[in-house]
Computed example of a mutant assay.
Amino acid sequence: MTTSLKIDNIKRHVERDIDKLKIEYTLYSPPGVDPWVEVRFRDEKGNEIARVSVRRDRKSLLAYFNGAKENAERLASILSVLGAKVEVKEYGGDWRVNLYTDSITAIRRVEWLDAVRALVEELHKRGLIGKEQRDRLLTEINAGPNVVEIAGAELSVWFREKETKSGKTKWLVIVYQPGSSAAFDAAVKALKGAGFVEGVHFTAKRPEGGAKGHVYLKMPTSIWRLEELRRQGIDWAERALRRLEEIAKARGFSDLLEEYLRPAREAETVDPRGLVAEDAERGIKAVIRGVRVEWDNNRPRVVVEYEINGVVKTFYFTWGATGGRIQASVRLNDEKALVLATLLGDEAIKGKSGTVKLVTNHLFALTRLRGIGWELLRWYAGATKNDTEFYSL
């Protein structure tokens, strides 16, 4: 019988008695040695059935066991039933079970969490970790697992920030770390099948030659695609976004997620047809008849049609990505400026004449318009795929 099948059999027995499982821990902190916690699992009669140690591993935590195969399999089955993702592997005759922070925090039993918190507090008390690292680890313990399922793959979610000359820079990391080439291929195939484009919505590196692989979702374009799928009624996309919101709330980066999602959440929520652009002082009143996108060498040309004094008129402008900038130029007079200001919701455009430059914020304002929003967002995602500075918070 293979190890995985044996663990599955043990799991079935553990699941029946999981409510009777008792968890105890002892914190060890001898001088000159990093502290650790030993967690023991006991059955209803008080007999010890498994144990595992938890210690610091650089900037994260590690729960580990080395020993006999039977004991490793029993421990793995218990941890798995409690919610952790766990594997048993052989190294030099010993059988090992290793869990890192994300799997450690997936176990939500109070006694287990108390043990892990006690270790973190002791590490801080002894000056082995700083306040910032202690707070981060405690947040992860309290928040629970940072995993979201997207297109059938489980991805880890991380919030990052750093100080720069211009202030704090914040960003979101969503990554899948496949355990094998087959898992990598399946994840990439599933993402592509859901309309995610490599280079636009994600980057991927296949595991080979002993090197680990990964699939990184690109921000914010990947979650724009999730929102687009949610709008189309795709259930797993709805669940993924809901889970991302739960993780963001628990870990304190809801504002960042909302900022990333805003263009997609607002996409095509405004019908431009029938909007009235009026300037009483100048005696101008125009009714917008429609807005559409035409294509000029893979660049979106936005065509605006409006009616004034019974006459239908149009003007257009074409977006491009050059020199690290998203921009368009448009020639305006009083009435065109009034119409464009109404579409953009930008009073500063009113009264302008001659050639006016439009920038990224204006593009996002246009994505709110029904019939052109998703086309513009898709173009933007492709146009900025090689430049991480286009969208910064």
Rank of each mutant, 00 (worst) to 15 (best):
M1K: 11
S4G: 10
L5E: 13
K6N: 06
I7N: 05
D8N: 14
N9T: 12
N9A: 14
N9I: 08
K11V: 08
R12Y: 05
D19L: 08
Y28T: 15
S29P: 07
S29T: 14
P30M: 06
D34H: 09
D34P: 11
D34R: 09
D34N: 15
E38I: 12
V39S: 04
V39I: 15
K45C: 08
E48V: 15
I49A: 02
S53E: 13
V54Y: 05
R55E: 13
D57A: 13
S60N: 10
L62T: 00
L62I: 09
Y64K: 00
G67A: 06
A68S: 15
N71M: 03
A72K: 06
E73V: 00
R74D: 05
A76Y: 01
E90G: 07
D94K: 02
R96V: 01
V97F: 00
V97D: 00
I104W: 07
R109D: 11
V110W: 06
L113R: 15
A115W: 04
L123N: 11
L123E: 11
K125V: 09
Q133N: 14
Q133S: 11
R134E: 14
R134W: 02
L138I: 15
L138Q: 10
V147Y: 02
L155F: 12
K170E: 10
W171Y: 07
L172I: 01
Y176Q: 03
Q177G: 12
S180P: 12
A182H: 02
A182Y: 02
A187K: 05
E198L: 07
R206C: 03
P207C: 04
P207W: 00
E208P: 01
G213L: 05
V215Q: 08
K218R: 13
S222Y: 04
I223M: 11
W224Y: 08
E228T: 04
R230H: 04
R230Q: 13
G233D: 11
E238F: 11
E238N: 13
A240N: 12
L244Y: 07
R251S: 00
L256N: 03
E258L: 12
Y260I: 11
Y260R: 00
Y260L: 09
Y260H: 11
L261M: 06
R262D: 11
A267S: 15
E268F: 04
T269D: 01
A277N: 10
E278M: 06
G283Q: 02
G283R: 05
A286S: 14
V287Q: 08
R289M: 05
G290A: 09
R292S: 15
N297Y: 03
V303K: 03
V304G: 04
N309C: 00
T318K: 03
W319L: 08
G324H: 00
G324A: 08
Q327Y: 12
V330Y: 04
L332I: 09
K336E: 12
L344H: 05
G345K: 02
D346L: 04
A348G: 07
K352D: 02
K357H: 05
N361L: 07
I372M: 07
G373D: 05
G373H: 08
W374P: 10
L377K: 01
Y380D: 01
A381I: 06
T384P: 09
T384N: 02
K385N: 07
N386R: 10
N386G: 13
T388W: 01
T388I: 08
F390T: 03
